[in-house]
């Protein structure tokens, strides 16, 4: 269940959408806009995606996860557009029967998301703006 949306993200909504009677654990990760980055004050962020490719790469991550762990469901929702401090930019949730695969797969998903999913953010500060790239 993958989504790229301009609307505010709902952690509750994502978690309840993937919870099944067979699942004893749902691990979730929420990425949040923080007030500073690399020593600069942040006014807001602008997220931009290549939506069709981003969804395809999220599916690829699910495939990688299912090779490594037994999970039941995974959802990744990413917001695009202008986000203020404290707003959620990404929500990942993984449901599994026991907790360990859910926790490990959730951590793996956010790492891989940052490596291969084509989503960019522009950090807008009082003194200018920069697009943030890989490894920065």
């Amino acid at each position: 269940m993958y989504e790229i949306t301009e609307k505010p993200l709902s952690v509750e909504g994502v978690v309840s959408a993937i919870t099944r009677r067979t699942c004893g654990a749902v691990a979730s990760f929420v990425g949040v806009v923080r007030e500073s980055s690399r020593g600069r004050q942040i006014s807001y962020l602008e997220y931009e995606a290549y939506p069709e490719m981003a969804i395809a790469k999220m599916r690829q991550i699910e495939g990688e996860i299912r090779q490594k762990w037994e999970i039941e469901q995974i959802a990744i929702h990413h917001r695009v557009g202008r986000l203020g401090i404290g707003e959620a930019s990404v929500v990942i949730a993984v449901a599994a029967a026991p907790r360990q695969p859910a926790l490990e797969a959730c951590a793996y998903a956010i790492e891989r998301l940052k490596q291969i999913v084509p989503i960019w953010k522009k950090e807008v500060s009082p003194d200018g703006s920069t697009w943030v790239g890989m490894g920065s």
Partner: peptide, 13 residues
């Protein structure tokens, strides 16, 4: 063909 600048990333999220 998508022209892809380095993907957004880092350790801040």
């Amino acid at each position: 063909v998508g022209v892809i600048p380095p993907v957004s990333g880092g350790t801040d999220v």
